Simulated scan of single mutants.
Amino acid sequence: MDLLERLITLFAENGYVAVFIALLLCGAGIPLPEDITLVAGGVIAGLGYANVHIMAAVTMVGVLVGDAAMFLLGHHFGEHMLQWKPIAWLMPPRRYVKMQDKFARYGNRLMFFARFLPGMRTAVYITAGATHRVSFWRFLMLDGLAALISVPFWVYLGYFGANRREWLGMWIRRGQSSLWLLGGLALVAMLIWWWRRRQRKLQAR
């Protein structure tokens, strides 16, 4: 919780811009937990330093811009990125090969669930871009759907727990498992929608 308190102080003094920049750094693989950053943004809204709905919008944009930047870097520079020192530290060649294998096996599902896998997001997004197997707009759609679950969850959790820190700490610890449940339900809903759409197309032929 020490990190959370430091972020709350920083964001309360600097507002939306600080939250946005912090989320860009999270997307770039800096070891700053995205969930704690989002919660801190929600807390300062709960304390009256920001509007929670604007905060939710700002954080959504920050998350998506950071993720998209990693995807586009992977798309344009591919394996050459592994020679860049920051990227080489984040994703050594052995890890890149392993990530390629996972992407080949799970594809779109991996891009969706990467949002709920701290420590893997940046590597997944870079690999997704480098493989050239998925368009930017498909990536943005899948990442955006996942972000619509995770980003409001953390921001509003921080907002409602701004003056109840023990309660907030408990739900931060429980939050990841709760997000897995929400993500799983969302994936099931997507699969049902896709199956019904396919059935309608087959019947129309």
Rank of each mutant, 00 (worst) to 15 (best):
M91D: 06
Y125R: 01
G74R: 00
M91T: 02
F103Y: 14
G144C: 07
M141L: 15
H132W: 10
L73W: 04
T59L: 04
P118L: 01
M99N: 01
A130P: 06
M111V: 15
V65I: 14
H75P: 00
G129R: 00
A114C: 09
Y106C: 04
H76T: 11
F112H: 05
L73M: 15
A114Q: 03
V134I: 15
M60F: 15
R105M: 11
V151R: 01
P118Q: 07
M111A: 12
H132S: 09
I54H: 09
R133L: 12
W137M: 12
M120I: 10
A56S: 13
L110F: 10
A88K: 11
L117S: 12
A147T: 12
L64G: 02
R95T: 09
F136I: 06
Q100L: 13
V63P: 08
L110S: 08
M141F: 11
Y106F: 15
A104P: 00
W84E: 10
R109T: 09
P92H: 11
P93Y: 12
Q100W: 08
P86H: 05
L73A: 14
M60P: 01
V151Q: 05
M81K: 00
A69R: 01
R95L: 13
L82I: 09
L117C: 10
L148Q: 06
M120Y: 15
A146Y: 07
G144A: 10
R94Q: 15
L117V: 12
V61P: 01
N108A: 14
F112A: 04
W137A: 11
L72I: 14
H80E: 14
I149Y: 07
P152Y: 08
P93M: 07
S135W: 01
F116W: 09
K85S: 14
R109C: 08
A123Y: 02
Y125W: 11
F116Q: 06
Q100G: 01
G144I: 06
F71T: 03
T122P: 07
T131G: 02
M55N: 03
H80C: 04
I126Q: 01
R109W: 04
A88I: 07
W89I: 12
G144W: 11
D101N: 07
L90H: 04
G74Y: 10
R105G: 06
N108F: 02
T127H: 02
L142H: 02
G129P: 12
Q83H: 14
V124T: 14
V97S: 11
L148W: 12
A56I: 07
A56R: 03
V58K: 00
L145M: 15
F136K: 06
A114P: 11
A147R: 02
N108Y: 04
